[in-house]
Design a protein around this nucleic acid. Sequence first.
DNA 1: TCCAAACCCTTGGATGTCCTAGTATATTGC
DNA 2: GCAATATACTAGGACATCCAAGGGTTTGGA
Lengths: 168, 168
Amino acid sequence: MASPLPRDPIADARLNWERHGWSDVAAPMAAITAIMRTQQILLARIEGVLKPFGLTFARYELLALLSFARSGALPMNKASALLQVHPTSVTNAVDRLQQAGLVIRSPHPTDGRTTLIELTQEGRTLAKRATAALNSEVFAQSGFADQDVDQLIGILGTFRRNAGDFSE
Amino acid sequence: MASPLPRDPIADARLNWERHGWSDVAAPMAAITAIMRTQQILLARIEGVLKPFGLTFARYELLALLSFARSGALPMNKASALLQVHPTSVTNAVDRLQQAGLVIRSPHPTDGRTTLIELTQEGRTLAKRATAALNSEVFAQSGFADQDVDQLIGILGTFRRNAGDFSE
DNA sequence: TCCAAACCCTTGGATGTCCTAGTATATTGC
DNA sequence: GCAATATACTAGGACATCCAAGGGTTTGGA
């Protein structure tokens, strides 16, 4: 770990924005930059916990998604939509998960274009163990106060809806 | 743009967590997942605005950092620390910025190990124009209410301090 | 003084993301 | 019924990030 900086670099950036006459957008700039940095910190923690399982966050997300599908299988385009990532990213993740024996590709029964991703028994077991690890080592010690968690869910939920993630 | 999903996938994930008996960590899981997704949305917007300038976010951040240094130059290790990215990422960004004529590498006057990154006149001009574009097209229309911006800055600032980003 | 440890940057490799293009299959419209 | 359009997945390329390792430079203690 790098040693802490003496000053908050984002607060400094905000001051620079204000000094240059961009005070009207200095606060949103700081908030957005803070989101970028927070994501980076959280991702590093998550990947650290998943590494012993031979998983990355991208692969874990797919595994977890499949484990919640009653049938344990999903079309690739559905997975792409739910995970909100590009189809090629799903192809990439499935390639590696399949190579590790955690999922298998199978043809869709009625649509010849579609490929189903199916969890193997091994994949299901690993998903369970990885989730337990994330729950205890990341989510249970998130570093956010309970009330802040609620604030974040509300603020970011509104943002995502306005950004067109979902309509509900 | 993908069409909006009928339901919020993160809210669904939270329900799945609760159904599986992980209610105690369902909320932090949702908050962290929302941060990951929000970062993805914001990064896409930023990269979209920067693309016409031939810049990526990583390169822009470095350019902006240099433009705020009075001398217009910084040691690479300093840039790495302030941007909170791995030294190799800075090497990569500098390679490309240098190739584009926006920065130049110069030897440190007293420490032979250190390389200074220096903004060219062209680089300084481009940084100004790119910042103006980000200010008007992203930060001024962030999609966050003013009070939410303040909430985010506070919550994420506390988180980053606790995570060891800075000590102040 | 001198050598080992610390530090700085770069190279090479692995992973993930996106974009563009291409192939195959479905669906739609005339 | 057949051509045009839409949809699903994959291949190849550009970028960014990290880690591990290597070569050059400085520093500090014996």
